[in-house]
């Protein structure tokens, strides 16, 4: 069994299970802040998934996508928290 097969058939399903739990919380989340945290974690898991994919297809080019995602992952959280704070203040 090669490393590529192991990652494609064992490690990636575990990550998919993790994404499933996060999406359950994203649907269920009683408040907006819960959903924002779930979304942030989803992007972070996306970085891990891209790294694994670059191992499976044996192409380090995809790591650049992961780098960009890691850079801008927190911007969505900052924007959402700014928006929630502003909406609360205007009420």
């Amino acid at each position: 069994m090669t490393v590529e097969d192991y990652i494609a058939y064992v490690v990636m399903p575990i990550i998919c299970l993790a994404v499933f739990f996060i999406i359950l919380r994203f649907i269920k989340g009683p408040q907006v802040v819960d959903r924002v945290v779930a979304l942030d974690l989803l992007i972070t898991v996306g970085v891990a998934f891209i790294t694994l994919f670059s191992i499976v297809v044996n192409n380090p080019m995809f790591l650049e996508e992961a780098m960009i995602m890691a850079l801008i992952a927190f911007l969505s959280t900052v924007a959402f928290s700014y928006y929630i704070f502003k909406r609360k203040r205007d009420e």
Binding site: I14, A18, F21, I22, V45, I55
Partner: peptide, 21 residues
């Protein structure tokens, strides 16, 4: 070593997402 490390990382991520749930 690659197999062990990637499995360990996936399990950490799974536990984090299960914690969120």
């Amino acid at each position: 070593l690659i197999m062990i490390l990637s499995t360990l990382g996936a399990i950490f991520i799974l536990i984090a997402s299960f914690g969120v749930f």
